[in-house]
């Protein structure tokens, strides 16, 4: 084995990932080659140092900044759930019924608060379209009531 080959296999050699016979070849080579021996020793120290590098310190108040975002996210998801929960559960019921799945214990469990994928199922929503003159239309019935899936 020549020096070039030894150096190309150095990482795997240092991590004992080479087949036994290849490692033996490298051992034989390094007994004769001082340069490769020195290179392997230096790399061993370098790799070991890299794997034990201490962590950098996170900025001051980093945890506060993250928690602000987490709490905002939580509140937003709670608000969404509050306003959508009735329709979510109704939709879930319709989906279960449409799929001929008995709304038994599984169905009841799916309709609890933690059931979140209903957000991605189209929900029926009512949309009211008023006339062009808003002032006037307030005293009148809406022109049309839309029903959208």
């Amino acid at each position: 084995m020549d020096c070039r080959k030894v150096l190309s296999l150095m990482d795997e050699y240092l991590e004992n990932k080479l087949p036994e016979e290849v490692s033996q070849e490298i051992n034989l080579h390094t007994k004769e080659c001082v340069n490769c021996m020195a290179e392997i020793n230096i790399n061993r120290v370098l790799v070991s140092a890299l794997s034990t590098l201490p962590d950098k310190k996170a900025p001051v108040r980093f945890a506060d900044a993250v928690m602000n975002q987490v709490l905002t996210e939580y509140e937003e998801s709670e608000n969404n759930e509050d306003s959508e929960s009735i329709m979510d559960r109704l939709t879930a019921f319709w989906v279960l019924t449409a799929q001929s799945v008995k709304p038994s214990l599984t169905g009841v469990k799916m309709m609890t608060r933690s059931f979140s994928f209903t957000k991605y199922i189209p929900r029926p929503t009512f949309r009211i379209r008023w006339g062009d003159d808003r002032q006037e239309s307030l005293t009148k019935l809406p022109l049309a009531v839309g029903f959208r899936w």
């Binding site: 962590d55 996170a58 900025p59 945890a63 993250v66 987490v70």
Partner: peptide, 30 residues
């Protein structure tokens, strides 16, 4: 959600270091 603070406090240095070493500066790493 407040329980998540314990997680953040424990892993913040590790996560920040990993991000820093990949993106290469403190501002973006944060």
């Amino acid at each position: 959600p407040s329980s998540f603070r314990g997680i953040v406090e424990r892993y913040q240095n590790k996560v920040y270091s990993t991000a820093f070493r990949i993106v290469g500066n403190s501002y973006d790493a944060e």
